[in-house]
Design a protein around this nucleic acid. Structure first.
Length: 259
DNA sequence: ATGCCTCTGGGGCAGAGA
């Protein structure tokens, strides 16, 4: 069984690349983030042509998450329990579904903007709500994982140059502590192979030749419980998908499990 | 090293991304 996660940075702009990637990689389950579309605008017919059912949660211009599956799709949950709001609005950042006997959550963790910003506090509160969902749903014997854009680099080696991040989100102690709390709740970080170079970055900025220079970050993560992690046979970052015109700034992370 | 930022909404350019 193949499960993947990909921040596509707009499902509309990425549709040709998404179709091509689904046809070649053929994941059984794909978690998507940053749809930037409403539920009505999601290209369900195009996904159905490729054999995928869709569960999506999107509100338009920003955010938006989905789960695609060709091994069944049930028990869809939109949003976290006690999910915090930002500026009085709930944002579409988490969707859970059960696919082929595996429980997955596709998440787009708030960016945080900068330490001290209200969005940063929102990010930390949001991660606490995610932990609540993990505690409630993982470790039951049904393989469970949270996959998505966590907007946190777990270690200093997960950014290309830590000295450039002294005033930045993504590497602060409270953010990393939130990840540690997820691990304390029974999840482990399924670290993918990089395919090239020595670090499995998943994101490279569009600017300043970041991708050719490999100035990347590992912020798209797979946090899996024991049942899920124990079944993993391989995991890799599909950096080929970051190349060329019309790419997302994130690459897919692919995990293979025993059937 | 595989390309010097891209996306949406709205109809210009602001806001977000990380």
């Amino acid at each position: 069984m193949r499960i993947a996660t990909w921040n596509v940075n707009s499902i509309g702009a990425r549709l040709p690349r998404l179709r091509g990637w689904l046809s070649s990689a053929r994941p059984d389950v794909l978690c998507l983030q940053e749809l930037k579309c409403t539920d009505e605008a999601f290209p369900r017919d195009e996904m159905a042509e490729l054999g995928y059912e869709v569960a999506c949660y999107g509100t338009g211009r920003w955010n938006g998450v989905a789960v695609l599956s060709r091994v069944g799709l049930t028990d869809v949950t939109c949003g976290l329990v006690d999910e915090p709001v930002f500026e009085d609005a709930t944002q579409a950042r988490a969707i859970g579904a059960t696919c082929g006997g595996v429980r997955v959550w596709s998440v787009y963790v708030p960016n945080g903007r900068e330490p001290g910003h209200p969005h940063y506090q929102y990010k930390l509160r949001w991660l606490e709500a995610l932990r609540g969902t993990v505690v409630a749903e993982s470790g039951t014997g049904t393989p469970f994982a949270v996959l998505g854009d966590f907007n946190i680099a777990p270690t200093d080696d997960d950014v290309w140059d830590i000295s450039l991040f002294t005033e930045s989100t993504h590497v602060t102690e409270p953010e990393r502590k939130a990840l540690a709390m997820l691990r304390d709740a029974g999840l482990s970080d399924v670290v993918p192979r990089p395919l090239k170079y020595d670090r499995p970055y998943t994101y490279w900025d569009y600017r300043q030749l970041a991708f050719p220079k490999n100035n990347g970050m590992r912020i798209d993560l797979v946090y899996a419980d024991e049942s899920f992690a124990g079944a993993v046979t391989d995991a890799y970052v599909d950096r080929e998908e970051r190349k060329g015109k019309g790419s997302s700034d994130h690459a897919p992370v692919v995990v293979d499990l025993t059937p």
